[in-house]
Amino acid sequence: MKIAVCIKRVPDMDLRFAIGAGGKALDSAGLKFDIADFDGYAVEAGLRLVEAHGSGEVVVVTVGPAAAQETLRKALGMGADRAIQLSADEVPFDGRAVATALATELKDGGYDLVLFGRMATDSANQTVGPMTAHLMGVPCVTAISKLDIAGGRGTAERQLEGASETVEFPLPAVVTIDEGLGRPRLPSLKGIMAAKKKPLEVKPAQLGAASLTVDSIALPPDRPPGRIIGEGADAVPELIRLLQTEAKVL
């Protein structure tokens, strides 16, 4: 089984963000980067599927600058077999521009499955997976939390609001991963050493035209600072009063 996993290098979301001088990007001072949350789950899913199948290959692919090679190496350290960097100075915000580059690379690659995280935690568009699928001409299932592959077909489960649905589809296909197949494994020391010797191919990204762009970014308005109104059950009547008269939600 041949699986591609498309991953993205994103800022560590636990850090405090500041706005950069141009007003269109984060201030890069102090930022740390890592693989996007759901993309880690996608790498884990790819590795588990190949392990369960007994043979195959996991190829990790990213669109991004040279610094994104660090993210590819991390996935190689987890156990992926080889990596492809589609080189671009910046990752366009427009999901279709990125999907065009990925589909161009993956279309004739003979992949049984192309996996994505359900969305990148930075741009949060959730569009690249299904758009890549369409451009490749293969079926797509998004945001799955369970996945079984057997006999050239897939069965997946998706979480809806207050429900879940079971989806069946033929391979080859694009599948985007929510949680559910298992927490991403940490690269072992041995894995990290092996990753340094695994092939990492660099090619120019054939990006599509971008018609979705960023005008500006801002920090969200501050909430008023938190307020502790009391201790223990005796504070409940005061809470009820505030909910009724101040917040007007009761």
């Binding site: 800022p11 984060l26 949060a124 979705l212 762009t213 970014i217 920090l219």
Partner: peptide, 12 residues
């Protein structure tokens, strides 16, 4: 809202 809601991005 992007970056897990920590940034508001104005898109065009």
């Amino acid at each position: 809202p992007t970056h897990i809601g920590k940034i508001i991005t104005t898109v065009r």
